[in-house]
Amino acid sequence: MIECNNLIEEMLNTERILVKSKKEKYSNSIDINDDDWLDIAKKQKNAFYNENRNIIELISKKLIENFPKYDAIQRNKIINTFSNLENLKSLVSSTNLNDKSSIDWFHEKILFFILNDLGDDTRDALLEIDELKKLSRKNNIDLKNIIKKYLAFANDKNKHGMGSVKSIFNDIISG
């Protein structure tokens, strides 16, 4: 197990690399009057991810392996740090697993959802969890059980006025 503060340092180091990478190539403003504005945004974001894929996947793996092993204070340190790392949190969401029908994939997605702590826009987080619900039903995965397992890890802070991760999870469990 990686000591919590060491993992925080690794997160910060990854963010430093991402900040430099973005400044060099991926911080251009997009002209939304352009017919291809959304495609340009998609390509830019994907290129940014692909260029840094190795370090993103590495820190993702470490987060998934270690976060559940920490105590409550350590977990909150990780969540709070993660929420301040703009680039990392916009890219680390996903799992290195490719099989979206596997139960392990759902475990990792829920853990990343907790880590992301609603991100910058609760509405995007709600979309993400809604898609997970649909995908779990399609693959006969009991998402409620997975959420129950990690419910204690979820932040109860209503960051944007539309509920907390914990309240979203409770709604799913009781729904």
Partner: peptide, 18 residues
């Protein structure tokens, strides 16, 4: 109007803002 605000890499879809 930057990529971060327009494309959600996690979902592989446009953001709500987009």
């Amino acid at each position: 109007r930057i990529a971060d605000n327009l494309w959600d890499a996690k979902r592989g879809a446009p953001t709500v803002f987009a």
